[in-house]
Write a protein that binds this DNA or RNA. Sequence first.
RNA 1: GUGGACGUAGCUCAAUGGUAGAGCCCCGGCUUGUGAUGCCGGUGGUUGGGGGUUCGAGUCCCCUCGUCCACCCCA
Length: 412
Amino acid sequence: MSAKKLQSIRGIHDGLPGEVARWQRVEQAARKVFGSYAFSEVRMPVLEPVELFVRSVGEDTDIVSKEMYAFTDQGGDHICLRPEGTAGAVRAWLQGGLTRAGAQRWYYIGPMFRRERPQKGRLRQFQQIGVEMFSAPGPIEDAEILAMAHAFLSELGVPELKMEINSLGCNSCRPGYRDKLVTYLQARADRLCETCVERITRNPMRVLDCKVASCQAELGDAPEMVANLCDACDRHFTDVQKGLDALAIPYSVNPRIVRGLDYYNRTAFEIVTDKLGAQGTVLAGGRYDGLVEELGGPATPAIGFAAGLERLAMLLDDDEATGPDMAVVALGEAVQGYALAQADLLRKAGLSVVHCGGGSAKRQFKMADREGVRFVAVIGDDEMQAGTVMLKNMATGEQQSVATAAVAGCTG
RNA sequence: GUGGACGUAGCUCAAUGGUAGAGCCCCGGCUUGUGAUGCCGGUGGUUGGGGGUUCGAGUCCCCUCGUCCACCCCA
C-alpha cells in the first residue's frame, strides 16, 4: 500500500503568492477606510470555548449544531475553532474590562472555520474582515456602519454590488410577528417545498427567502417584519434610512433578508453580487443589542458586520505582476563577497533586490529576466576594481557604467 | 448531510479496450561578461489511490480520496 499523498484538508486551501497579493489589496482597503472611521484593529484567539458560540450564535443554528470544529483537549476542556468573529469580540471586550471605556470601534482580519461542503466562495477555513461597534445605541451608528461598509467596497473598487437592508425587529415585536407568519405558513404548508415545511417550525423567517420558485409564488402576500415593527423599531429603521439618504448611499429595503445567527435584532443588511454563483453575499451584518447581556455583560447596544475576504478577492482583477527593482549578477568567484555587499547596499538605499546567485552570466540574466526586474547590476572584476556596476535597463537593453553610490539614483 | 460533473507530465489538454502523446514551462547547448525572439537536444507519468472484469484497462465495474457545481446553510 503506497503512502497517502500528503495534502491539505478538504476545503482548506493555501494562500500562495498570487492569491495573497489579492488578499492584501482587500486588507489594505479595509485598513485605510476603517482607520478613517477611527476603528482600531484587534486580534482575537482562533480557539474559543464551545460554550461561547452555543450561547451567542445559538445552539440550534447550523453553524453551532453541525459545522463547528469542536473537540475536547487533553485537559478535558471543550474548545473549538471559531466559526465567526462577533462572539469572540464580545467576549474579549467583556474580559478586557472595557464596558465603561466608552464607545469601542474594532475591526479584525482572520480565519474562521466551518465544516461545510466546499463550493464556490465557500471554504472550511476562510477569512473574515469583521467590524464591531460597542455602545452604539442609535440609528446614527447604523448609518455610519453601513456607510463604512460601502466606503470599504468602493475603495476596493468592486463593481456592481447591491446593498440591501431590513429590520428584524426586537424582543417586543418579533415574537408577535413570528406567530403571525407561522400561522400564515401553516395555512399553505401543503404547497411549500419540503425544506420549507421543516423551516416553519425551525426557522420560519427562512421560508421567505426560499429559492424555490413555487414557494416564492405562494408567498406573495406573506406578512413581513418591516410592516409589523413596534413603534421604537419602526422609528429606528426609518432613521437609518434617513441617514443613508443623507449620505447618498444606494440601498434597497429587502424585507426578506434573514440572518442565520440568533443574536441579531433590528437592522440587518447584506451586500451582494451576482458574480459568485450561489454564494453572492460578500458582506453582511447587523445590530445585536442583546448579545452582550446574553454573555454576562451589561446591556449594551452594538452593531457590526463581516466581509468574506476570499469572496471579495474573487471579484478583483488580476494584479499586474511587478518584479523587484533590481537583480545583481555577479561574474566570477573573486567578486562574490563584493557583490553580496553591493546587493545589501542597494537594499539599504530602498530598492528591492534579488541576487542571482553567481554562475554563468547567461543563467543569471535568465533569472533576472524571469524575476521581472527593471534593472540588472552586473558586477565583475572590472566593476569591483572601479567601484562601479554595469547597470542594464532590461526593457531597453541599454547599459552604462555607474558608480555604486549613484546606482539607486539611476533607477527612477 | 444530499445530488451531479470531473481527476492523464509542473500547467493546459489529447489518446475506437491494444506500445501513454502534444503545447507551454523547466534544464542544457548554439560566443564561458548578457535575458526576453530563433534553432537543436534533454528531464519529466505506477493515468489520484485500491480492488475487480479482460488475453490486454487511461478507457468498463465497485470502493475510496480530492476538486468543482448545486441543495442545505452562510462571509
